[in-house]
């Protein structure tokens, strides 16, 4: 199953009644088992695009669809930047939320919940409430909740941006391990270039005002172990290339803010 984003535009009306074009003419596909990363400076429309793909916002023009569904109703799993765990539910109850809403029988919920909680390394914290968890653990629970419904597309909006640098590095590694087991098609939003090169099969660079696709870069490196010594030069080359594309826009963004 592929996800196709076709001719998507998004216009907002701002507080002064002026029209702001957040996205213009966005076209790309996400293939099966592919991780596509969206990078771009602050305010370029990354979240807007992810929300449109996630069905939480309507595009002004264009459409987003699944291709080759064979009449299965496709599922989406979203990991939110704000984490958005339900504070009144324990880790386990949060993780199985999607299954509960789909009417999955209790026994299966328990098995799957346990499986994915184990996958993100939260075994032993099933009965903890979110406020009892550290930032990294909360986001792990958020990831488990998205994985648990076994989605056809996983959407992640800067999932690790609220975490400290060490936790972040570990979580990136874990995410790849998880991907290796689940092989989910993923759309990943970040403003961190290292993260984009580390995780992506393809990196889509967005420009600002309006948010357009500036370039799509294929990362021809093996999925696992890109941070090893052997690939250091190529890794840096990709990172520099992307930074070259973003730099000017990022400086502009800073001036506006």
């Amino acid at each position: 199953m592929r996800i196709v984003v076709e001719n998507v535009d998004k216009k907002f009306v701002d507080n002064n009644k002026r029209e702001v074009t957040a996205l213009e003419n966005i076209n790309f596909t996400i293939n099966e088992e592919e991780i596509v990363v969206l990078v771009g400076p602050s305010g370029c429309g990354k979240s807007t695009l992810l929300n449109i793909v996630g069905g939480l916002l309507s595009p002004t023009n264009g459409q987003v669809y699944f291709e080759g569904t064979n009449d299965i109703e496709p599922n989406l799993g979203i990991v939110f930047q704000e984490i958005a765990l339900f504070p009144w539910r324990t880790v386990f109850e949060n993780v199985i939320y999607g299954l509960e809403e789909r009417g999955v029988p209790k026994k299966e919920r328990e098995e799957k919940g346990k499986y994915y909680i184990d996958m993100v390394g939260l075994t032993g914290f099933e009965n903890a409430y979110p406020k009892q968890l550290s930032g990294g653990m909360k986001q792990r629970a958020g990831i488990a909740r998205a994985l648990c419904i076994e989605p056809h597309l996983l959407l992640m909006d800067e999932p690790f941006s609220a975490l400290d640098a060490q936790t972040r590095t570990i979580m990136q590694e874990e995410l790849l391990t998880i991907w290796n087991r689940t092989r989910l098609s993923t759309l990943y939003v970040t403003h961190n270039i290292q993260e984009a090169v580390y995780l992506g099969d393809r990196v889509i660079v967005l420009s600002r005002h309006p948010g357009k696709i500036k370039s799509i870069i294929n990362i021809d490196l093996p999925k696992i172990g890109r941070d090893s010594e052997q690939y250091r030069d190529q890794f840096e080359k990709y990172a520099d290339e992307i930074w070259g594309l973003i730099r000017h826009d990022a400086q502009e963004a800073l001036k506006e803010a």
Partner: peptide, 29 residues
């Protein structure tokens, strides 16, 4: 009630009634 929680519930398949019962009610409690 935090809007992202409502978005999260809807994404994971909640009907309007369940959004009220499982998110809005406990959130407003």
């Amino acid at each position: 009630v935090d809007q992202t929680l409502i978005k999260a519930a809807v994404t994971f398949g909640s009907s309007h009634f369940n959004v009220i019962r499982k998110v809005i009610l406990p959130g407003a409690l």
